[in-house]
């Protein structure tokens, strides 16, 4: 089998592969930078929480309108934002911390979602919502994924400076603003929800987290600065998306897990051999050092 047959032909011959490629590349571009900030803010598990949180919204949308993409998307968006808002508010106004708030509300949300889907739909529907169906992406789903990813990327660019400041000195912006609560954290959480909602139709709400976090964490081992880490995360996500799709095509594997596992392989490789703090770089002392 030639390189052309292996890599190019599947996309040239099949429109569903082209759409799947475009959608998953767009997701990689939108999710990578967000994942980097989640990781740097020590909120890596927050994406997972929010992915569970959007489920009941999607389920309600499904109950109201069947497999209607706009309604399910809107439902997911509303549920995710609600959980983010409630978790943020409970951390701000009560004694619990944000992670505890997320753990609590995502559990409630997930249980509600499973209950709704199980009662009114079948297991197949539930699997579709949880794990998506990247090869069944139609034009509407493609537009949704690319639109949400583009919007998430643009907003990230707009709030980049305050996000960086908050990562380094969490109280600084509040103090500089005279003690008032600053909006940046909420905007950022809304972006996480937006990116996950963009991914749910393509990869399912659970698999979308993988494409968000694995490239971001892997990028930590290759880049030193925030922006280079974001670029690395996007590149890793895109290569994982394309490679995962091809693996899925040639070996008849489910596509979402194939993409996420490819990103996982990137992560394991980085963990072992990444030059910035990977296991190998820690175990093997450098051969030379400078005088000063």
């Amino acid at each position: 089998m030639t390189f052309h047959e292996l890599v190019v032909d599947p996309f040239v011959q099949f429109a569903f592969m082209r759409r799947a490629l475009a959608a998953s590349l767009a997701l990689g571009v939108g999710c990578g930078p967000i994942g980097v900030f989640l990781m740097l803010r020590r909120m890596s598990l927050m994406g997972d929480s929010l992915s569970h949180a959007i489920l009941p919204g999607v389920a309600v949308g499904f109950l109201l309108a069947g497999f209607s993409l706009p309604v399910m998307t809107l439902g997911g968006l509303v549920a995710g934002l609600l959980v983010a808002l409630l978790s943020g508010a409970s951390a701000r106004f009560t004694v619990i911390k944000e992670d505890a708030g997320f753990a609590a509300f995502q559990s409630i949300s997930l249980a509600a979602g499973v209950l709704i889907v199980s009662t009114k739909g079948g297991n197949v529907d539930l699997l579709h919502v949880l794990f998506g169906s990247v090869l069944a992406v139609d034009d509407a789903a493609l537009l949704l994924a690319t639109g949400c990813s583009s919007l998430a990327l643009l907003v990230m660019a707009v709030i980049y400076r305050p996000l960086v400041i908050q990562c380094f000195d969490p109280a600084y912006l509040r103090i500089a603003g005279g003690g008032r609560a600053d909006p940046w954290n909420m905007i950022f959480l809304a972006l996480v929800v937006l990116a996950l909602v963009a991914g749910f139709q393509v990869m399912g709400s659970l698999m979308a987290v993988g494409l968000m976090m694995l490239p971001a964490i892997a990028a930590r081992f290759w880049a030193r600065q925030v922006w280079t880490m974001m670029v690395a995360a996007v590149l890793i996500a895109m290569t994982a998306a394309a490679t995962g799709l091809l693996l899925s095509f040639h070996f008849s594997l489910p596509t979402g897990p194939a993409i996420v596992l490819t990103a996982g392989a990137w992560h394991l490789f980085s963990l072992l051999f990444g030059p910035r703090g990977g296991l190998w770089s820690r175990l093997k002392p450098p051969a030379r050092h400078r005088e000063n």
Partner: peptide
């Protein structure tokens, strides 16, 4: 304000 260092995130790549 100059905060105590424990309130900062020292590992942040900046």
């Amino acid at each position: 304000f100059l905060p105590q260092q424990v309130e900062l995130e020292p590992d942040f790549p900046m």
